[in-house]
Design a protein around this nucleic acid. Structure first.
Lengths: 209, 209
DNA sequence: CAAAAAGATTGAATGAGTTCATTTTTCAAG
DNA sequence: CTTGAAAAATGAACTCATTCAATCTTTTTG
């Protein structure tokens, strides 16, 4: 059986994560004070800092959970994509976008992005970066899959094209969370429009019916 | 003649901007205390806050100056670009990148980007966003110019393609400032590689010599 | 089981950004 | 030259995130 100490530790960690996630959503990141999080989790402020390097670390931890889900939800689409380049891309990307606001608010995204840029060497920021890489690879893999199926022409550098699509969708998502008034639909439309030229140019000519 | 008050105000603002810029470069953003900036500029802390909403606002002000220069430096290239799509793009983009570290350190860039994401509604953040838009338009204009000269094929949505190139170069620059170890050369090479497929696909066939 | 070592917890103290009631300076009217 | 009002400047006080020396709990050792 696991030692008492290990169990207590896991339990405290769970309580803190839960308290923080709820508080972040309830009052926003800035207004959620460490003292409050600690109180809800029934630990002291000092204990919080034994588990997390700083306040931002805690937020990035919750974001990482979300991105992992997004990544997983993308797999079936990559495994069995629509037979049209732009449609396949949109299916994957819109899946990302639709999932993005399930657990997190725009405010939380903004803060998480800001932290991952400003403190790139904190453990959870590194994890965030890794997840970004994984998403980028997933897009590249989709292109590669389409190439194998003859939807995308041969001789295209799938890694380069995948990176380009990904950087574009990522940058546009950043713009989306920065603008509180921008809707998900608007985001999807804009990105689809931007993707169209490259998607069309790398596509093989349509088969006749 | 301008009133005494207006002159004093302009002078104080200049002193604060100068003090802040120098301190940021000397000791980094975090270590530069408002108290020190105020002392160097020979004003009180309170006065600092009469001119700038917060510490980050001051940094974004200095960044905005830098971006304006970059934008200006890009104009001659757009006016008279190399006759090859990828070369023209690289010329403009590398100009951006080379200029980026003249006044600002990676640390300052990271902080500025973080602020512009986290507090998008502060006046200087809005200016930063505007400048980003202007850069994006500049890239689109370059593509359009190449199209007019027959280097890029007709029927390409230059705004969409320009946005894609820009979002890619911007995202890659973010990655660059996040990674203290990444060199400018590495950044340029990576971006050129990513741009190649789209640049090639939108290019008109080479004229025979 | 006792004692020592290792691991965790604690919360008061620290320090930096930000606020705001008060004071000082400038300007315009009489 | 007053004087009242508007604008600006001020710095002590406040709010939090973060630290750390002291204390407590669990585990290991003899």
């Amino acid at each position: 059986m696991t030692g008492l100490r290990a169990r207590q530790k896991a339990d405290k960690n769970r309580r803190m994560l839960e308290a923080a996630t709820r508080l972040f959503r309830e009052v926003g990141y800035d207004a959620a004070r460490i003292e409050d999080i600690a109180e809800r989790a029934e630990v002291s402020v000092g204990t919080f800092y034994n588990y997390y390097e700083n306040k931002g670390d805690m937020l990035v931890a919750t974001v990482a959970m979300e991105v992992e889900e997004v990544l997983e939800a993308g797999e079936p689409i990559v495994a069995n994509p629509p037979a049209d380049t732009l449609e396949a891309l949109s299916a994957l990307i819109n899946q990302y976008y639709d999932h993005s606001l399930v657990y997190l608010s725009k405010d939380m995204w903004r803060t998480a992005m800001a932290i991952s840029i400003q403190q790139p060497d904190t453990p959870f920021s590194r994890r965030y970066t890794e997840l970004d890489r994984a998403l980028c690879r997933q897009v590249s893999t989709l292109i590669q899959r389409l190439q194998q199926r003859g939807v995308v022409i041969m001789g295209v550098d799938t890694a380069a094209v995948g990176a380009m699509f990904f950087n574009n969708l990522n940058m546009m998502f950043t713009e989306f969370v920065r603008d509180e008034a921008m809707s998900l639909e608007r985001l999807k439309d804009d990105v689809a429009r931007q993707n169209r030229p490259l998607a069309t140019l790398i596509s093989a000519p349509q088969q006749q019916a």
